[in-house]
């Protein structure tokens, strides 16, 4: 295997770590509430703007702005679920999709008004440089962003598997009626779940801001990736999102090498369609929710 492939693989894994973080919150909301949050992508972008402006005006390092993003975005998500989404939670799939789509149009338009449609790039001064692992060279900022992304994802996993609230969320995911009978306040759990989902989006924004330019219309691309990852890894589980994210990162990196970067969308969506048709429950084969 030539060296180039190791480099591409490493790039893919770094990207994949970030993707896992993007997708885990989206997957959680979809799996637990059967709601596809179209806003997810735009919340990532909003988190990226938060990091950008915190760095620009207050000199806050983007890694630290994650600490601001976590409570802020959790509160946004919690409120959104309580005030809007909960009202139509029992309605057909189409309505929740349309509702979050409408909200997304508003958020996108709002971001264009507030931040203009120009691309912004967060530039650290001084730059963090690169690190060589044998012959493979990786930029430190990417590596650090991946490490933090994985840490955030692991944090979500720990919340779900270890805390009381997390276990209640898992219980609601498995059987809402039974959980309600056991005394779980389902509406509150939904709000917390949605809060956690939005929190993961907002918190991954600063990480992506260190690597990619920020545009108010960048949300749908992130959303598409989150969706593909859910289908790859299976729905509603953090390990699934992790696997799906890493697979997508690696596939995209090699796809760019072999087919050219301009076909990235077609490639990942072809993968999506194939997965939906032949492995609808994900690579791990776990049963998904419709």
């Amino acid at each position: 295997m030539p060296l180039l492939y190791f480099q591409i693989l490493a790039n893919g894994l770094v990207l994949g770590g970030l993707y896992a973080c993007i997708a885990s919150g989206f997957s959680l909301v979809w799996g637990v509430q059967n709601v596809i949050n179209i806003l997810h992508g735009s919340f990532i972008v909003l988190g990226a703007y938060l990091a950008y402006f915190a760095h620009l005006h207050a000199g806050i390092h983007p890694f630290l702005s994650i600490l601001i993003a976590i409570p802020v975005f959790f509160a946004i998500g919690y409120g959104l679920q309580r005030m809007m989404i909960n009202r139509i939670i029992a309605a057909p799939v189409l309505l929740t999709l349309t509702l979050t789509f409408g909200l997304d149009l508003m958020l996108q338009n709002g971001m264009i008004m507030a931040f203009t449609a120009d691309f912004k790039k967060l530039v650290l001064d001084p730059p963090l440089g690169t690190i060589a692992l044998g012959e493979v060279v990786l930029p430190v900022d990417r590596l650090a962003a991946m490490a933090l992304a994985l840490a955030l994802t692991a944090m979500l996993y720990l919340i779900l598997s270890r805390s009381r609230i997390g276990r209640a969320i898992v219980a609601v995911r498995m059987d809402r009626e039974a959980a309600a009978l056991m005394g779980v306040n389902v509406a509150r759990i939904y709000a917390i779940t949605f809060g956690l989902g939005v929190m993961m989006a907002g918190a991954s924004g600063p990480l992506l801001a260190m690597i990619f330019p920020i545009s108010p219309l960048g949300g749908p691309a992130y959303l598409g990736k989150a969706f593909v990852i859910c289908v790859l890894g299976g729905l509603g589980s953090v390990p699934g999102a992790m696997i799906g994210g890493l697979v997508l990162g690696v596939v995209e990196s090699f796809g760019a090498l072999w087919f050219g970067p301009e076909h990235a969308v077609t490639l990942s969506f072809s993968l999506l369609i194939l997965m939906l048709l032949f492995r609808p429950h994900g690579l791990l084969g776990r049963k998904g929710y419709e």
């Binding site: 009202r87 139509i88 349309t98 509702l99 789509f101 508003m106 958020l107 996108q108 338009n109 008004m113």
Partner: peptide
């Protein structure tokens, strides 16, 4: 004109709700 997608979004939200 400036905010027409936003207002479109608002219309959608109000309609669904």
């Amino acid at each position: 004109l400036e905010v027409h997608t936003g207002v479109l979004g608002l219309m959608i939200v109000l309609l669904v709700l």
